[in-house]
Amino acid sequence: MNLFKYQGQEEDHYTHILMSILSYNNYQIIEPFLKNLLKDESDNLNFNNTFAKVRKKFCPQDPKLLEYVIGIAPYKNSFSSSDLEDNSGSIPDAWICGENFNLLFEFKIRGMLDKGQISAHKKLLSSKDTEVLEYNWNDVKDSLQKIELSDSVLSYLVQSFIEVIPSFKSKRRSSGMPKQIISHINKENELHFIITGSKLSMNYSVDKVYNGKSIQLNQLVNGIQEARRFIASFVLSNYNELPIEFIGQETIINDYCVVPGRSKKKNQWNQWRIGAFLN
């Protein structure tokens, strides 16, 4: 893994950085990190041939004796009820595998762990009774801080990551943020949909934009939520022809909401999963 490879979604980006640090110099600190984090659960782990992978749908090695789903979020005991009934398309954030173990990681830097997502992840492992271990980002910070580091480069990388961890708690969803929205990142260089309209204009329009080319898909939508439902259905029906990574209901869509006559800086980018808007 390359530490400096940018991952488009903020959560994916921080996951990639952490896993790149753990992979540094032939996975130098994975063993002490996991021992500090998992404590007694790590006693029987054989760390020979340990490696890590990010964003892989299926386990990158054969079933092993010890397998866990590990969830890390700002707060413990904070599972939310999923808005989606089917999370079968969900892709784990990361895997760490060793001689006799497979660990599936799901990270959240805001909000809560999703019950449906975790349940879907459990099905990716060989045991029907796979145990879920839940930790928070302070546990990650403590685990990193306890590692004795003699490599100055690695020490700098670890310390830099520790310094950003406190910001994850402040990223919890605010009361004014729709629960379906997962981030607000400018994605004008990727496929996106522009939703134009206001309560005063009554009708909203939906345009598909890619590589600077815009195609109007609908000009008679009655609101932003209806526009997103339309977009979700459009993507589900046409994903084979769209430049996106389609992963079922977990597919992430970018939209840009425009209110005519309003200052451009007040228009907003949004990211959401199509399953949150499919009937």
Rank of each mutant, 00 (worst) to 15 (best):
L125R: 00
Y6M: 13
F246R: 09
A120E: 04
N36A: 09
E226I: 06
F230M: 03
K179Q: 09
P92S: 12
A232F: 01
I70K: 00
M202R: 14
E67Q: 13
P74T: 06
E226C: 04
N136F: 00
N138V: 11
N36W: 02
E41K: 15
N238S: 12
G261V: 02
V164A: 07
K199S: 14
E245W: 06
F58T: 13
F193S: 00
S263N: 15
S183F: 03
D129V: 05
I181S: 02
Y68M: 02
N218L: 03
A73C: 12
K122G: 00
W272S: 03
L34G: 01
Y239G: 10
E226Y: 04
S82P: 06
T15I: 10
F58H: 13
E131C: 08
S150L: 09
I96D: 03
N100T: 02
L84Y: 06
K123N: 11
G261I: 06
L157S: 11
L154R: 03
S175M: 11
Q249A: 12
A73L: 11
Q28F: 08
I215T: 12
E41Q: 15
K208P: 06
L84Q: 12
D142E: 15
Q219K: 07
K123M: 12
F277C: 12
S155Q: 14
S183E: 15
Y6A: 15
K179V: 08
L38I: 04
N218S: 07
C59P: 00
S119A: 15
Q219N: 14
V54E: 13
D62W: 07
Q271I: 07
Y239T: 08
N77K: 01
K76G: 03
K264Y: 13
F33A: 07
